[in-house]
Design a protein around this nucleic acid. Structure first.
Length: 270
DNA sequence: ATGGTGACCTGACCGC
DNA sequence: TGCGGTCAGGTCACCA
């Protein structure tokens, strides 16, 4: 699914349609997502959507009485469509708006989630132990360097850990490691401060570019207007094992790290 | 604490 | 054409 860029693209697509609208009805056709969709989600009905935010890979629909958290899992997407459009397979949730439009959630694998957090001043537990946002100034080379000291975890697993930094999933971990010429299996603790500077800059750059391109569509991902994302054509290594390295021509290799496919150039990345 | 594995679920693809 | 195996953008619960 959706890594951070895809969630951000969804947020930007939905916000102009949702902000200021009243939620007239929430229709849950399939409540069995990653977690059972809570009944309290219906507390949102009749409320005005004050903002559409994002934290990590969660979209946050804010109202005066609480906020809905939407996670797209591996295969989820959100679209804005006219009310009355007949649901298709895997269209699990519709959020009806006073404008006559609705936000429709589709998720074939159902690894995603719709959660509800009442407005009691607390954050939902799923937002509890998250690291900094990668595209903010909280995510710096110094932070990553300090955080990685004495860690023997492969750097790729380390950077995909949401407690370290949020939003870097398998695609963008592969891509940013390639850009920074860091071998994915290198121990996190072996990162030099100079490496960290390059790596942090490249992560920000890859994520920002992907957002500009509308995200990466491999299979399921759709922007809110139904279009795919176009970053797939920019991918340097992800999915390209066996093909020549775009930088040096050496055949790209793949290994499993933490059960996830990892593609890298054995010559460029050390 | 940390690291490794299985689990959740559907669909696409590959080889026989 | 059908069947079984493998793989896929994420993350949590459990084990040693």
């Amino acid at each position: 699914m959706p890594e951070l860029p895809e969630v951000e693209v969804s947020r930007m697509g939905i916000k102009p349609h949702a902000k200021g609208q009243t939620v007239t009805k929430i229709e849950v056709r399939q409540p069995k997502l990653r977690w059972l969709v809570p009944e309290e989600l219906h507390d949102m009905e009749g409320q005005v959507i004050r903002g559409v935010k994002r934290r990590a890979k969660y979209l946050i629909l804010e109202t005066d009485v609480g906020y809905a958290l939407v996670h797209l899992g591996m295969s989820g997407s959100l679209r804005v469509i006219p009310e009355g459009s007949p649901p298709a397979k895997h269209d699990h949730v519709d959020l009806h708006l006073s404008s006559g439009e609705m936000i429709r959630y589709n998720d074939p694998r159902r690894f995603g989630a719709w959660l509800w957090q009442p407005n009691d001043g607390l954050d939902h537990p799923v937002l509890g132990k998250l690291g900094p946002e990668p595209l903010t100034d909280d995510f710096t080379a110094e932070y990553l360097f300090e955080r990685s000291r004495n860690k023997r975890t492969p750097i790729k697993q380390f950077i995909m850990d949401n407690a370290v930094v949020v939003g870097v999933g398998n695609i963008y971990a592969n891509e940013s490691l390639f850009m920074s010429r860091i071998h994915p299996k290198r121990q996190a603790g072996q990162l030099s401060l100079e490496d960290a500077h390059r790596f942090v800059a490249d992560i920000k750059s890859v994520l920002a570019t992907a957002i500009e391109q509308g995200g990466t569509t491999l299979k399921d991902f759709k922007q809110a207007d139904g279009k795919p994302g176009y970053f797939a054509q920019e991918l340097q290594v992800y999915g390209n094992q066996g093909k020549p390295c775009p930088a040096c021509g050496t055949e790209l290799e793949s290994v499993k790290i933490g059960q996830r496919n990892t593609v890298f150039c054995p010559d460029c990345q050390i």
